[in-house]
Structure formats: C-alpha cells, structure tokens
C-alpha cells in the first residue's frame, strides 16, 4: 500500500471509536430529542407513541408555569452575569499589579469554581437558613440591618436571592482567571506610551485596558449567558422549584415534567425551545459584539 493511502486509513481508524461513540451518544440523542417533542411519549416502551405534531409546543406556550420558569431563568442570567464579570475584573485588576502571593490568592478565589454544585448548594442552604443561619445572624446581630430573621428560601419574595448569590460567588474565580489572562496579554509598552502622554489611571483603564479586553468581554458574556441559562442544581437543591413553584427555572421545570411526571415528549419540547433560545442569544451576542477592537 502507498504511504498516503495507508495514512488515510490509519487516520480513519484513529477517529473511528470516538466518532462512533459521538454519533450514538450525542448526534442520535439530539435528533431524537427533536423527534420525541412531536409525540405523546409513552412511559412503557412497548406501547407505541402517539404522534401529536406541534401539540406539545402549543401547550407549552399556554403553560403559565413555563413562563414563570422562563422569566426566572432570564432574570438569573441578567443578574448573575454582570456581577460575575465586574467582580472578576476587579479581582483580576488587583492581582495584576504583580504583588506577592498571587498564586495563593488565585487559588483561594478559584476554590468555589472547582467545588461541585451539589456541595455548594447544600452549603448555601445552611448559610441562608432562617433560624440560626449565619447570614441572618450577620445581618441581624452583627450589623443590625434587619429586626427579624428573613425566611430566605421559604418565601417567594426572597427565595431567588440565595440562588443569585451562590451563582455569583461560584463564578467570580473563573472570570478572574480569564480576565487575568487577558490583562497579561496587553503589551506593557502601551501603558508606558500612554503615561508619557500624560494619561492618569482612569484614562489608562478606559482608553487602553477596556478596549483591548473587548474580545475577553465578549467571550465571557457569551459563555456566562449560556451558563446562566443552564442553571439547574442550585435551584433543584436549594428550593426544589418552591415555594409554591415560584423559583422554577427551565431546567428544573423540564426535570419535573420529564422525570417526575414522565411527560417525556413535553420535556423534550421544553428542551428544544431552550436550545433554540440559547443558540439564538449566543449568535446575537457574537454578531453584535464581536467587532474588531480597533
């Protein structure tokens, strides 16, 4: 066999196992997800499923519980994304001054990122406990900001707050790291030149740092928005969608429909709508924000 033919064959063999696994475990389920959303899918695999066309979608768009979940998901993204970015940038700017102990600080800020959602969600549930929770203690007994304990997770008006706080707290380490890499890639000469021209620190930030970090901003905005829409375990664990179904997000609502009520077709329809939304938003953000920085 000629060498090129042989190498073509070898290359094919290299990717074959991975691609097979990928076809069976990713491509097929994606297509099947769209397909299932058109059926009243039966719990018993032996009974044929009823084709109902777009009925799941029609029902979905009249489902008030779906809108609650949708609004909560969007609110979660709108609230947590900017906080993660601003705070992460702030820490990165401080760390970028080249002080001693950078590695240690980086590790400490990064700890929440590498801790599993299950653990931190359980932990925050304890911190935000109504009676004897440390957050209420700090607010009431240390700073005297409130008179009575707040029932954080037990009342509709405040139940989302611990979930937002957790999302922001867990995300800062990641934005910090990405901003730090972005900051370190800015050539030092630019700052020197600007300083010679008489720019102060604020000018340096707005005229040099910020424009050069633009690609980093866009990247983070897209990734964090997608991540925000995928919020799941924190809500699932801390409130379970309650009180009175007020904190459901798309993922928990999908879980409830599919794996508690076994409405697989309906759950698949939620998943499809969710996917189309995330896809559209990330495309829009890319298009509107990814202009050349100069």
């Amino acid at each position: 066999m000629k060498r090129t033919t042989r190498r073509k064959f070898a290359g094919f063999l290299f990717v074959l196992p991975g691609m097979m696994a990928y076809l069976v475990w990713t491509i097929y389920p994606i297509l099947n997800g769209f397909y299932m959303s058109l059926f009243k899918w039966n719990l018993n695999p032996k009974i044929p499923n009823d084709f109902i066309g777009l009925e799941n979608y029609i029902e979905l768009f009249q489902d008030s519980q779906f809108y609650v979940a949708l609004v909560n998901t969007i609110k979660y993204a709108i609230i947590t994304v900017p906080f993660q970015m601003v705070l992460g940038l702030l820490v990165a700017l401080l760390l970028n001054k080249g002080m001693k102990g950078q590695t240690l600080f980086r590790l400490l800020f990064y700890l929440p990122v590498i801790t599993s959602w299950v653990v931190v969600s359980v932990l925050f549930q304890y911190l935000f406990a109504t009676r004897g929770g440390i957050v209420n203690f700090i607010l009431k007994d240390v700073f005297h900001l409130i008179k009575t304990d707040i029932k954080w997770l037990a009342q509709t008006s405040t139940a989302m707050i611990p979930i937002y706080v957790l999302g922001i707290w867990k995300g800062i380490g990641w934005t910090m790291l990405i901003f730090l890499a972005g900051l370190q890639s800015i050539p030092k000469q630019l700052y020197e030149a600007a300083r010679i021209d008489g720019a102060n620190s604020w000018k340096l930030f707005t005229k040099v740092t910020a424009p050069l970090l633009r690609p980093t901003f866009v990247f983070q905005l897209v990734m964090l928005t997608i991540g925000g829409f995928n919020v799941f375990l924190s809500v699932f664990i801390m409130t379970g969608g309650g009180p009175r179904n007020s904190t459901h997000v798309l993922n928990t609502y999908m879980f409830k429909e599919a794996f508690e009520y076994f409405h697989f077709g309906y759950g698949a329809a939620i998943a499809v709508v969710f996917f189309l939304m995330v896809f559209t938003i990330s495309q829009l953000q890319r298009r509107f924000l990814k202009r050349e920085p100069y």
């Binding site: 097929y28 389920p29 994606i30 997800g33 798309l250 998943a271 996917f275």
Partner: peptide, 11 residues
C-alpha cells in the same frame, strides 16, 4: 453549544 438538557431525555 447544545445544552446537556436536550440530550438527557433521549439518552
């Protein structure tokens, strides 16, 4: 970019 959610039910 496909969310894991879309995969779970069919899987």
């Amino acid at each position: 970019a496909v969310p894991g959610l879309l995969l779970t039910i069919p899987q």
